[in-house]
Design a protein around this nucleic acid. Structure first.
Lengths: 348, 348
DNA sequence: TATCTTATCCAAAGCGCTTTCAATTTACTT
DNA sequence: AAGTAAATTGAAAGCGCTTTGGATAAGATA
């Protein structure tokens, strides 16, 4: 069913039908009703492409997910973030265009999207510490919101993030308060800004406490279970093994937990662990007493908010860059406890 | 830069430029070169919407992800599948339109997509045992490929799946061969077809072996870590606790592993576990000796293949429904071993 | 009753592309 | 040299919608 057919059926012009459906005032209320009813009856929906052509807007938002190599990790955080954003989009008649792009030619991907007129704006994922995309997107004038921040740049841009630094500082502080001094950090890739900020929070807290940083207690890689396992295993084998771990994601933590139990230790008693919990739906950490002590911040919520921010910007591009910094909640679970001197050394 | 401008710059008509760019034969080779070079220089890309309007195709594929309630689990398998599909799309000039839809009005979502002319085809995720979407999509004539199958329906349609039934039958058989008889199944939601087929494989193998089914050893729910933990914990507390677990996903298995170790048992020695491994990138199970004995099948590969299938169908809708059944590989890891009589009973 | 508003509605142009139908060259035959 | 076929290019229509610039009818004003 196309506009013309609907108009013919109603004995009206396309103009009037279009206006009735789009809520313009120069249509008699009675006519509008008639039109709307007919539209429902015939399940009429304006053709997106035709509408886009006529209005110059595509009613679509691009999400560009960087992938570093062919078989690279797809961060499950994306799925959750997108689930949040998606709600906002469909509530506002927008579509979500997903592109999985080589990190190499990611800029190209954005340019292409704009040139093709495929999207009205984009959400930028996984910003790096000094991410060139910010400058580029401003250049080409494509509205965007970054999930995360870009610390080492002093341009204005819109973003939403949670307070990585503060969260990890607090978490470290908690471990210090429990008496731990040999605290390991098992982090994501530290060229990515979020991981870098987390590390800052960690080092800051240690420095404040007058504890020297030990590079052998810091590990940084893709956030996989395997990364957690191998890093933690290696650290636990050291003569001066850490008594506590600060861990950047639930996935990593699963590996850490495995390493701990392989080492014959018990999490929460012999070794403390604090994780950052993105509240992924398939990794609930919310038993009455959660497994993991965690700093938590809902990625899904961030997704919904980021999407709304972007739509606002598209509606009125003149509004100054906006941003929102979410605070994480610290939840005490069973994975932390006061420092206890181990009776026997590592029984590896 | 739009077609007209480019044509003007070249002193050619839009017609010729369009033809040159789209590879039509009635253009002198020299002219084509000139046009292509200019297109690159000015970074010209045809406007998707205009092109779509003119050709009647949208060059976009829809992926509809069902969500059952507001805070429902987003299966990480989607992310991986989509990463695979995405490669195929961008190699063929297609876009990927993602919709997260209420399972309730999912049919509506498809109708809407078609009416709006937003997509040329869709990939259907998470089919149920008797999924009404098949009939509906055939009705409205939208090309589609199902990731999975719909067992209880005898319509023809295109699908790609891996052999769930066979995989779980083999896995069960392996456990039987190892001497296990009390074998538990911790499955996904069994109204979903894949889970149903897995259960069939499991029950079939047990029946063949003359072992009575024990409903208390079968559990079915969303595939989360929590599900694995609570189900396995409960079963391990029973007087006749299972000595082996068949588990539908890596995530569930993590919970099972936790339950096993909480029960003071050791996986692979006291209790055997076989999982199905979708080869998610952030859960590599491919150490020299993998943690988990597993049936494996790459979801990412399935995504790429499904996408290619769909594009083929769109190119030539007359081709009969096609399908592909992938076989899973069984990999022996350290989570399985021969049945050993436990010295002490469950020490819970 | 004649004029001016206001409320409704419509014809037609235009969004940027593809594609049909024609026109113009050029190449080839005889 | 004349005529025909093949190669190359363009003009213009059309995809389905929005929106500008009237037109018309009804109501208000004087």
């Amino acid at each position: 069913m196309k506009l013309k057919e609907l108009a013919d059926k109603l004995g009206l012009s396309q103009t009037t039908v279009s206006r009735a459906l789009n809520g313009y005032p120069e249509v008699r209320e009675e006519t509008r009703m008639r039109v709307q009813k007919a539209a429902t009856t015939y399940n009429y929906r304006p053709n997106t492409r035709a509408m886009g052509l006529a209005t110059g807007r595509s009613m679509a938002i691009g999400h560009v997910i960087p992938v570093y190599s062919k078989n690279e990790v797809v961060n499950p955080v994306f799925g959750e973030f997108i689930a949040g954003a998606s709600q906002t989009y469909s509530a506002n008649g927008y579509e979500l265009l997903l592109t999985v792009a080589d990190a190499q030619n990611e800029e190209d991907t954005y340019r292409k999207l704009v040139a093709k007129g495929a999207v009205d704006g984009v959400i930028v994922h996984s910003p790096e510490r000094n991410d060139s995309r910010v400058a580029m997107l401003r250049d080409i004038g494509l509205p965007f919101v970054i999930h995360g921040r870009v610390s080492e740049i002093d341009l204005e841009y819109s973003w939403i993030d949670f307070n990585n630094r503060r969260a990890f500082q607090q978490a470290t502080q908690l471990l210090l308060d429990l008496g731990h001094e040999k605290i390991a950090l098992i982090n994501g890739i530290e060229t990515l800004n979020f991981a870098w900020l987390r590390r800052q929070g960690y080092t800051h807290a240690l420095e404040q406490a007058g504890i020297a940083l030990d590079p052998s207690l810091m590990s940084s890689a893709e956030m996989t279970e395997g990364h957690g396992y191998s890093s933690a295993s290696a650290m636990l084998k050291k003569p001066d093994a850490p008594t506590a771990f600060l861990v950047s994601s639930y996935m990593i933590a699963l590996g850490v937990r495995r390493a701990i139990s392989h080492a014959g230790l018990q999490m929460g008693r012999d070794v403390s662990v604090i994780i950052h919990d993105d509240e992924l739906s398939f990794f609930q950490n919310n038993d009455p007493v959660p497994q993991f002590t965690a700093t938590r911040s809902s990625v899904r919520e961030a997704g919904a908010k980021a999407a709304q921010m972007l739509l606002n910007i598209i509606d009125d591009p003149s509004i100054a860059p906006v941003s929102e910094l979410l605070e994480a909640h610290l939840t005490i679970g069973s994975s932390t406890g006061p420092l206890k001197r181990l009776k026997a050394a590592n029984q590896n």
